[in-house]
């Protein structure tokens, strides 16, 4: 009974959230369009939303191709970065010496601005999709590593003692207790990394490419195509939001116990 009512409450609140989201978006759209008309804002500063949407609708193929390209770069870097981060965090957790020697270096690596790094990456990997994925990877793996390590370390010592009293070897201690216990913390980093990896991919495109949202943004800036800038911005934020929401959705499924505690 309790479970049933909880589930329906959950569904209801999910529906509610979507409704609120749509209402919020609509409100922003109306405010955008209305303020441009009401206050007579010059298109140079802020074009009308309708004009921006028109621009996207008139060349849908270009935007679709850019989204596909940028999404591919982001996703490739994100997935490999997340996997590497979880692996690295786990290795650090098990080998303290390795952690103490390598971890400071990873911290230093993160202080290198991604822009400076971008030039080198393009030199190494050329003007490829892979080069941009490397940028996304670089921004993703670090927070995931840190949170994996933190999550693994946050186990309740009493639960660990319980597992040991059952005679559990290290492998089981990890897979049955430490790793599942770390998942909520890992997902915090995975959510954060969605926007970071998108930034990485788009900045990577600035070092030379022909398709992609970063390219659209750069071209529009060079041509002082204000509508183009806003259109690229709008599409990029839609992609970022969708990406974030997907990961948050997976999070709710995987670490279901967290929200209900």
């Amino acid at each position: 009974m309790a479970a049933a009512s909880k589930t329906s409450a959950g569904l209801f609140s999910t529906g509610h959230t979507v409704l609120r989201l749509v209402a919020g978006l609509a409100a922003i759209a109306v405010a955008w369009q209305a303020s441009v008309l009401l206050f007579g804002i010059r298109p140079y500063y802020l074009p009308k939303l309708s004009v921006v949407l028109d621009a996207i609708a008139s060349t849908p193929a270009a935007y679709a191709a850019s989204v596909a390209r940028t999404a591919a770069e982001t996703l490739l870097g994100y997935v490999t970065g997340a996997a590497f981060g979880v692996l690295l965090g786990s290795v650090f957790f098990h080998h303290k010496v390795l952690k103490d020697t390598l971890f400071p270096m990873f911290v230093v690596s993160q202080t290198i601005p991604v822009i400076a790094f971008g030039a080198v990456v393009v030199l190494w990997f050329g003007n490829t999709l892979f080069a941009k994925a490397v940028m996304a990877f670089y921004l993703t793996f670090f927070p995931v590593t840190v949170n994996t390590l933190l999550g693994l370390q946050s186990v309740d010592p009493a639960q660990e003692a319980l597992m040991k009293s059952f005679g559990a070897p290290h492998r089981q201690l990890f897979w049955k207790l430490q790793f599942p216990n770390a998942l909520p913390q890992i997902f915090v980093a995975l959510r954060l990394a969605t926007s970071l990896s998108l930034v990485g991919a788009m900045v990577g495109e600035w070092f030379g490419d022909t398709t992609g949202l970063g390219v659209l943004l750069l071209q529009a800036t060079y041509n002082e195509n204000v509508v183009g800038i806003w259109a690229a911005l709008l599409v990029a934020s839609a992609l970022g939001t969708l990406f974030y929401a997907s990961v948050a959705g997976i999070e709710r499924k995987v670490v279901f116990w967290r929200a209900e505690q």
Binding site: D156, A158, Q159, A161, L162, S165, F166, G167, K176, L177, P180, L183, V255, F256, W257, R258, Q261
Partner: peptide
């Protein structure tokens, strides 16, 4: 592994 031990708190795994 040879004694069945129940600590003070239930220590159930929430997942």
């Amino acid at each position: 592994g040879r004694v069945s031990f129940m600590p003070q708190r239930d220590l159930l795994f929430s997942w």
